[in-house]
Design a protein around this nucleic acid. Sequence first.
DNA 1: ATCATCGAGGAGTTTAATGG
DNA 2: CCATTAAACTCCTCGATGAT
Length: 220
Amino acid sequence: MNLNSYSFASDLDDFMPKLASLPVEWDGKACVLELKEADYNWKQMEWWAFYFEFKVLQKLKNICSIPGDRIERVEFDMKTQINWDIKAKAIKSDDHKVILNDTIAMQESISNHGFHGEIIGLCDVEYNDRNRSFQRWHTELKGGLSQYEIKRMAGPSTFSRYRKTSAVLSEIIYILFDENDLEKLNQMNQGRNSNDKPRPPKYMLDLEHIDDFQHEKQEI
DNA sequence: ATCATCGAGGAGTTTAATGG
DNA sequence: CCATTAAACTCCTCGATGAT
């Protein structure tokens, strides 16, 4: 394999025109229904992030392999000559850090192909579900509370994360990492899994330091 | 003394694969 | 077939610290 033959610019030339036609204003209910229609993660709490992933894959399916490489238990979203993963980030949140992928898997991805890419959708999200009406609608669509939720409500912690009711896609960032970049990233220890077992760390990108990396921005 | 900010660590949910 | 495990997608709270 020739690691020098990869061209970031060429991937961008392919991606950017296609993603320019992504939907921009995402209504929560409409998006969940669209995901349900496609049977694609429509019950998820972070529906907007799955929606972004879903639409990007839909636009790029003819020019990428889906999914990408699988490394141990980790599977990347798609692949050209290199692996790509698709992330969404709420831009109005307190921190400006994007959780990326498993540290070992990213290292492996880079040593196999020379580079690793991430497509990050920045969204202006509405957290106005104070009265939980969207959440109630979603729960009803799902056919009631899940076992996981019932268990949580029986425990000491009874807070359920606020839902986003809508999102507006404002910018897409394409970023490329090589082997020297990884040490510049923060790490995110994911705490526990849903079954209380610990999870291995992921890399995390501070958007304030994005100039340390090769990247391209696309305004929507 | 009080307020804003930051990082660490804990949390919230579903799904697919595995094991019995 | 049901239970368990560990992926996926991220956010939120809390205590320490520095600023007013």
